[in-house]
Amino acid sequence: MGELLSLDFMRQALLAALLVGVAAPMVGVFLVQRQLSLIGDGMGHVALAGVAVGLLTSTSPVITALIAAVLAAVAIEWIRARGRTSGDVALAVMFYGGIALGVVLISKSPSGTPANLNGYLFGAILTTSSTDLMVFAALAAVVLVVTAVLRSRLFAVAHDEEYARAVGLPVTALNVTLAVLTAVTVVVSMRVIGLLLISALMILPNATAQLLGRSFAAQVRIAVLVGVLSAVGGVVTSYFAATPSGGTIVLFAIAAFVLAALAHGLLRRIDARAHAAAERHDHEHGPGCGHEAIVHDDHVDYLHDGHRHAPHQGHYDEHADHESASHEHTH
């Protein structure tokens, strides 16, 4: 009986981990792109004050945390949009104020045990009520749908805000939406990963993907894969090893990052050996540049003084000499 219950519960926990594993990197990619990686961390601090208010007034801590985080999101975006240097200090006051208020208020609440506080700060999915899990699942689904619909616009704004404004995209509304999506993700993840660690699941899978991806689409795919594997792997491990779920998940994400970094370094070495850089020249190869273009597998080589030059990142690689090496080309 107990076995079954816990199995049933485990199923819910895994579903929550799966949703968080998808949602956090999907929202996080835009934060990384806008170089606001630590914003989620700040929202987590403020959300703790919300949790405390909930515990103190015996209302649902999820609802109060959500309200606090969304208010913080709007305030952050407002401060950021004003672009004042004092904004940085304003954010610090808000973030530390949030966590300090949270700790003090929780100590005064009837259910404010240190274990309870730890559960919110570092995640304790195995002690979360199934009603809360249902709420988290619903919120995570909303985050996923909204992010998916807005994806190309969020990309445009994060990539080049000035251009987005010039073509008439609703830049301010999109920025506020991203901040609110971040806030909701923080709250959704607080029982799985914890308010102090949630930013890690938004950022680390994207850091891993940055090493491996060569397009935005690939970046998102890899980050979501790493996020899901870390979240699900972390929850399963924390169940068997009796460790806190949040820390376990984040350690998984860090392991993925380290592996990717090692693989990346290795690939670059192999790459450097396989590539011979062509001599530097002041000419830019391209269609109609005057040099014969030769299709070579997935790219185009340009015949330059009998050598085949293949564009590679910022320079040209020397590819196998063409048979007609006598064919002299000058420019």
Binding site: Q33, Q35, A156, A158, H159, D160, E161, V167, L169, Q210
Partner: peptide
């Protein structure tokens, strides 16, 4: 615009960036 307004924090292909022109 001038080039320096762009974020390179996350990879994006030439086609993905040019595709932004279709968004409006």
């Amino acid at each position: 615009p001038q080039r320096h307004t762009l974020s390179h924090a996350v990879p994006a292909t030439v086609r993905e960036v040019v595709g932004v022109g279709r968004l409006p």
